[in-house]
Design a protein around this nucleic acid. Structure first.
Lengths: 216, 216
DNA sequence: GTCTATACATGGATAGAC
DNA sequence: GTCTATCCATGTATAGAC
């Protein structure tokens, strides 16, 4: 089996980082073997030697970048114990992403996956890393609420991740609009967390209503 | 001022429709003067004659397509009077968009706006058409709820629109995941609407909690 | 005014050098 | 095994035909 020499590894890593830089800074439309190689400081043809095609490089870069980004936030996500903390962390991540752009990168790849079928699974996988972390937090946070039984952490995690990608893309064309969107979500979170503060009678009333309108 | 002959108009319209088709079917990465012109059935150079550049054509197509898409849903949005109705309509729109792809198109343009600065304002404008409609609905729906004073329809509309774009892009790489995300949001909507059913005492308790934790 | 033929730039991929 | 020189396809833009 391939010994994977140090030199090969080095070039591959350069290309992966170059791909991430190019995607975040110039978008999927301007990402090519040439632009990535330029960012990586290597010959353009090495993309094809090491990864077979541009698409496969981007797929590999997606896995690589998503793992890096998620691991950067993993500890802080693990420390979250309430909905309001989660919302505050979401806001903090947004601020950091404004510079790093790791989430918007998923948006670029999501957009690119339309054309490059090979990107679909890789992008879904990258998003899944985020979803898994978010789901873990939601399970923990929602277990402590009186209405946890009516929520689906798995689906909710997917909704949160997809929405976050949407907001990060939106941020690119309307920073003020994205900020007000996050403000509104924060208010909404406060509203939901207010439910936790209800007395037993009111909680029973809400639960009753939920059971009545529950589908499936 | 330019009489804008019938022939010119016809070619322009062909190009606009071709641009929309190309963007939705092949994504921003594979959208070029050549591919759009092929879809439109006209000579590639006409892109530059009629619109000056590919970017300007895409910007025009964005305005054109967003106006068409929003007007298609406007009547149904105007008929919404409750949160649960809004969620049901969101689900219906999602089903239609699965085929039409008008929302995912905004995702493609949002992704493209990173590279092509000219696309930014146009895409923001296209999204704004959706946001305006959603905001109108939210104002109406939230005014009828006991907690309307704690929500910001303008920000919430932006959040909803951006999230919807994110979910539509996500749908492209994981249809089942997107479906479960929408299910979860629907549940969440039911949870919030359950608040409307609370008795006066519980409502006062929730309001008190909200005032206590309200920011700004 | 409308459109086509054509020039020039960029991108993808490989044959073969080291 | 690693990489470069080179080829052909695709993309952008314009000069000039109709």
């Amino acid at each position: 089996m391939s010994p994977e020499t140090a030199k090969s590894q080095e070039t591959k890593t350069k290309l992966l980082k170059g791909a991430l830089r190019t995607l975040t800074e110039h978008g999927i439309a301007k990402t090519s073997a040439r632009t990535v190689a330029a960012a990586a400081g290597v010959n353009q043809a090495l993309v094809f030697y090491h990864f077979g095609s541009v698409d496969e490089l981007l797929a590999a870069a997606c896995r690589y970048g998503a793992e890096q980004a998620v691991s950067r936030y993993r500890a802080r996500l693990a420390a979250v114990t309430s909905l309001s903390e989660l919302l505050a962390l979401g806001r903090a991540i947004h601020e950091e992403e404004r510079a790093g752009g790791h989430v918007a990168l998923l948006g670029q790849l999501l957009a690119g996956a339309q054309t490059h079928p090979a990107l679909g699974p890789a992008t879904a996988g990258g998003l899944q890393l985020w979803i898994d972390e978010i789901e873990r937090v939601l399970v923990r946070v929602l277990a402590g609420t009186p209405f946890g039984e009516f929520t689906d952490p798995a689906g909710l995690a997917r909704a949160v991740a997809a929405s976050f990608v949407g907001v990060e893309l939106y941020e690119g064309v309307d920073a003020a609009g994205a900020a007000s969107a996050l403000d509104a979500l924060e208010q909404l979170g406060v509203l939901v967390s207010a439910l936790e503060e209800l007395g037993p009678v009111a909680q029973r009333a809400v639960r009753h209503h939920l059971r009545r309108t529950a589908r499936r």
